[in-house]
């Protein structure tokens, strides 16, 4: 292990410890803001886990987020909390495996179209089930979980998602996915089981999204399908991950933090025009920063390295 690696490890440990004591230092408003920041950081990073290397644009974040939240609404009072989270994760992985197996064989565009409507589809099925079978639309969640608990759970999940992302990037699976992203035909000729690799990563990414939904659910106390399956979340997550740059594990977080703050500010100041401004931000990113902040940083680094002596690329 080199010195720089040790340094990075020490800094990130210190950062985690620092973030863990935040709830005891700040007031309720800032705690809520911290929760939102963590929520979007995890969602964007999880999105980047799958969509970064494969370049499949997934708009299904809301679907999994909502599945997690709804699992808590249904089972929250019947089972102990860790078990509820486990069930949510299982349901999320089964749903995403079904979706992945049926759509990831198709070309990228078909996948986008399918995920575009997936949240709406799951929402309609939940509404249909609630209206016709269980005969309740809208449920209350009364759980003994404080804002601090939510914050700490999200922080733990954030650490896990980064660790998993780091491990995947160094594994055979991550390498296979990068090849698929470059050229799927080549990947198939190299003997990579393309469908398995894509579905596996899609499921991993979806489990994190489901867990975020489940952890966030106690915050609402009242939940109904239109709250749990709020389509804006999918869109926001895509913008954030793109701003950061989805081809690095830590890229999406770089986009999630400034944009969460921006949206928070905008929805407080200009509630009516926030959709419009979101669109403008989106276009600015697509036209001006096609490979995100990370891409920009890498370009600057390369430029500097180019003027110095030639070194081996990392």
């Amino acid at each position: 292990m080199s010195v720089s690696q040790l340094l990075i490890g020490a800094v990130s440990l210190a950062a985690i410890a620092g973030l863990a004591v935040v709830p005891s230092l700040v007031d309720a408003y800032h705690l809520a803001l911290g929760i939102t920041l963590l929520q979007f950081t995890i969602l964007a990073t999880a999105w980047g886990l799958f969509s970064g290397p494969t370049r499949y644009v997934s708009l299904a974040t809301t679907a999994f987020f909502g599945v997690g939240a709804y699992t808590v609404a249904v089972l929250g009072e019947q089972l102990p909390w860790p078990l509820v989270l486990t069930v949510a994760a299982v349901i999320g992985s089964v749903t995403s495996a079904i979706v992945g197996l049926s759509t990831l064989r198709l070309s990228g565009v078909h996948f986008v179209i399918f995920t575009f409507g997936l949240a709406e589809l799951v929402k309609q099925l939940v509404v249909w089930f609630e209206v016709n079978k269980s005969r309740v639309l809208g449920r209350y969640i009364f759980l003994d979980i404080t804002q601090q608990d939510i914050y700490w759970q999200l922080l733990a999940l954030a650490v896990i998602v980064f660790a998993v992302g780091w491990l995947i990037a160094r594994s055979r699976l991550g390498f296979a996915l990068r090849i698929i992203g470059e050229d799927e035909t080549v990947a198939r000729h190299c003997g990579i089981n393309v469908t398995f690799a894509k579905v596996a990563l899609f499921v991993i990414s979806a489990v994190f999204m489901t867990l975020v939904g489940a952890i966030m659910a106690p915050r609402w106390t009242y939940i109904e399908p239109s709250i749990a399956f709020n389509a804006t979340i999918s869109f926001e997550v895509v913008i954030m991950a793109l701003l950061g740059g989805a081809h690095r594990v830590w890229g999406p977080a770089l986009g999630a933090i400034p944009l969460t703050l921006l949206f928070e500010f905008l929805s407080a100041r200009f509630p009516n025009t926030s959709t419009l401004i979101m669109g403008v931000v989106f276009l600015l990113i697509v036209y001006a920063l096609p490979s995100g902040v990370v891409g920009l940083i890498e370009k600057i680094r390369q430029f500097r390295r180019g003027s110095a002596a030639q070194g081996s690329g990392t």
Binding site: V57, G108, T273, L276, I277, G279, F282, L283, V286, Y287
Partner: peptide
Amino acid sequence: EVDSILATFGLMFIVQGILLT
């Protein structure tokens, strides 16, 4: 395809935002 999806996606929000206001 990917670029046009993303660009028209932003456009969608802009048109929707204008209609909403």
